[in-house]
């Protein structure tokens, strides 16, 4: 099936956000906006939001913005159905979502309702949200994406892991493009179980085969380099060997020392609460914004710390501006 061709190159062609007070991805490079009282879901149509949990709504909104940014404005009514649809572009588009706390609200709300009113108290509309893949599922349905569909619930590194698996799907030739969404909802179930403060928002990017992006004349916003998930931050960064970088995106809660020489360090969304499974995608969106201002530069995204044996791990991902040829 697969010939001796080189694997497809994965590039990023768009990014979008759904975070209160943030007008666009460029805001990720500056201080937290002064006015964050608005509803991050204000831009979502009532029809799109119907019967969906908060994480799904946030991800649909950020995803729609990323698609528009990539020059693929999505008609939110998929009309491309039937057996042949799997051979058309929607059949070659995948989805990868990342969230650690996404459906805790549904799970906790349902067991409360059962305790109070027996099984008759549970809302049948919530059944799909009991499974943690509900976000990726609704993105696929809403935007007509019939390719591989993955949900990473992988702890601190989850967002960068999601970007990695999206690139894998493109490089393996399983799909031509992937919408990646990282989302965490802020609600009582999340703060009750994981503690405060919870982040409430989503970031999304479009990962695409370089050949397919060139074929449709889409500008490349970032190139994706090496990725590793290892025992700790030092090991992960050593495995991707980025050399000196222009931008280093720090893991949650920061890190004392840059793992490589970095001209600029950034804690993406540092004051917005625990970004968890959204953080890696927020970092990649921030890198896209950075490359818009700093051509010929390179960025290192890092999530998780790892460290002692009972910790999980850390992940690192190298990104480069489209003009960077180093």
């Amino acid at each position: 099936m697969t010939g001796p061709t080189r694997p497809a190159e994965a590039v990023i062609t768009g990014a979008g956000l759904a975070v209160a007070g943030y007008a666009g991805i460029a805001d990720l490079l500056g201080p937290v906006p002064a006015d964050r009282d608005g509803d991050p879901l204000a831009g979502l149509s009532r029809r799109l939001g119907r019967h969906k949990d908060r994480a799904t709504r946030l991800a649909l909104l950020a995803g729609g913005r990323a698609l528009a940014d990539a020059g693929r404005p999505a008609d939110d009514t998929p009309v491309d159905t039937g057996p042949e649809a799997f051979d058309r572009p929607g059949g070659r588009t995948g989805v990868v979502a990342s969230s650690n706390y996404g459906n805790l609200d549904t799970v906790c709300g349902t067991v409360d309702a059962i305790d109070a009113h027996t099984y008759t108290g549970a809302s049948p509309m919530l059944l799909p949200s009991t499974a943690s893949n509900v976000v990726a599922s609704w993105i696929a349905i809403t935007y007509g994406m019939r390719g591989a569909n993955l949900t990473l619930c992988n702890g601190a590194t989850s967002g960068l892991d999601a970007v990695h698996w999206a690139c894998h799907l493109v490089r393996a030739g399983r799909v031509d493009s992937v919408l990646v969404a990282g989302v965490e909802p802020g609600n009582d179930a999340v703060t009750g179980l994981a503690g405060a403060p919870a982040f409430d928002g989503a970031a999304a990017i479009v990962v695409e085969s370089a050949r397919v992006a060139a074929g449709r004349g889409a500008p490349v916003r970032a190139r994706v380099g090496r990725y590793a998930r290892r025992a700790d931050l030092r090991d992960a960064v050593a495995a991707v060997a980025p050399g000196p970088v222009d931008l280093w995106c720090e893991p949650e809660d920061g890190a004392a020392e840059p793992p490589v020489p970095a001209r600029h360090r950034l804690e993406v969304g540092a004051q917005l609460g625990r970004r968890s499974g959204a953080l890696g995608v927020l970092q990649v969106a921030a890198a896209v914004a950075w490359f818009g201002r700093h051509p010929r530069s390179r960025a290192l995204a890092t999530c998780g710390r790892g460290g002692e044996a009972s910790a999980d791990a850390a992940a690192a991902l190298v990104l480069a501006a489209p003009e960077d040829r180093s």
Binding site: L150, L152, N154, G155, W165, R229, A309
Partner: peptide
């Protein structure tokens, strides 16, 4: 007692098998 960091299996896989390149994929 439950640490929400253990919603996914990475910590347990690290403890038992020293595994660090682990992925919990919730694909229903």
């Amino acid at each position: 007692d439950f640490d929400t960091d253990r919603l996914h299996f990475g910590h347990a896989l690290r403890e038992r098998f020293g595994a660090t390149t682990t992925y919990t994929v919730t694909n229903a």
